[in-house]
Design a protein around this nucleic acid. Structure first.
Lengths: 197, 197
DNA sequence: TTGCAATACGGAACAGTGTTCCATATTGTG
DNA sequence: CACAATATGGAACACTGTTCCGTATTGCAA
């Protein structure tokens, strides 16, 4: 679900009409993003929310602000899956599983991949938030695996996140998984010899 | 340069006005693509070519047809670099160098990366042509390296091409190269042990 | 409660985009 | 040289994102 109060932490109290607009906007955007992807026309969102275009732009001057607000909780959940996996599996297995988790997350949000890599100013703050959450999560997994001597320690988490989100192919999960496996094997190369396949 | 005759191999002779339109269109498109990327507005191309919009759509119903026509020779040249590198370097080195070559090619054509992965029907035939040329080139390099026992033999060339063109980051060549190196290391994993770094 | 300043609202208007369509102009041929 | 076939240019259309402003809503002070 979506947290309708997270938008203005400093504001003392929110005018009820603002609250309603924000509420309708976020709900509508979530539905539209889910069905039509994050590149869906603005008008479809405002129409579904029963709100004017001006209202949308007032609250979300950057398109990425709306996307961030809508996906915030899911991004957080994905990041928080990292420690859980680290507890449950051995380091490399946990790493692999989390990368797959991440890939499915990106793949599930149609258009998110291109938005992340477009460089379009309308999406400026989007990669920032993703990295802010995912870099620490991934760093933890990489460090654990490196400490165990299962992977090398010269890989930059940020690099790997970019690579994963670049590789993701929403319509071909099998391919995406093969490529993640290949990247993980790349991380292992140069450590102890591979076990027999 | 651009081959102005390649558009209609079956046609006996081309009406001179058609020849001129095609010529102007391809030249203008090449310049515009180079400066503004392949997503440049259609009107800019037609304006520079001194041609109407109808003329463009008559000759290139799909946007990807125009892109393909413009880049045909460069794609071919990139594909033909593979055998040359295979002669000059040992297998894995040749493979790595060609993948870098490919990455630079994709990066140099602004917007090409997204066009390749957009799934937009306007770009349908584009990946087809790229794969048609690049799959054989890459297959040759992979087979040579696998025959030498330097990489595994279970990797699908098509997969690797998709992955490279997904990873490419036009504004960060160093990153792109790091990730290519990581993928190549993934290909090596499970073969003979790595040499000391 | 009432009046008023501050704020937010809706949606029309604007500036771009890709694409289609057809009256006009060009060309090859009998 | 006339005429049918073809190609051309650009106006017109449908659809974007974004801005702007007259109107409506709200909270606060008197």
């Amino acid at each position: 679900m979506i947290d309708r109060t997270a938008e203005a932490p400093p504001a003392r109290r929110m005018r009820p009409d603002v609250q309603r607009s924000l509420d309708a906007l976020l709900t509508a955007a979530a539905e539209v993003f889910a069905s039509d992807g994050v590149d869906a026309p603005v008008r479809r969102i405002t129409a579904k929310a029963g709100v004017g275009a001006g209202t949308l732009y007032r609250h979300f001057p950057q398109r990425s602000d709306l996307i961030t607000a809508v996906f915030r909780h899911e991004v957080d959940a994905c990041a928080e899956a990292a420690p859980a996996l680290a507890d449950q599996y051995e380091p490399v297995e946990a790493l692999t599983r989390w990368l797959r988790h991440l890939a499915r997350f990106v793949a599930a949000k149609r258009g998110l991949k291109s938005a992340l890599h477009s460089g379009d100013p309308a999406y400026q703050s989007l990669p920032a938030y993703f990295m802010e959450r995912f870099v620490p999560a991934l760093t933890q997994l990489l460090d654990a695996a490196a400490a165990a001597g299962d992977i090398r320690s010269d890989v930059i988490p940020y690099d790997l996140l970019r690579a994963i989100s670049g590789i993701v192919e929403p319509d071909d999960d099998a391919y995406t998984q093969r490529m993640i496996a290949l990247l993980v094997d790349g991380l292992r190369y140069g450590t102890h010899p591979a076990l027999p396949k």
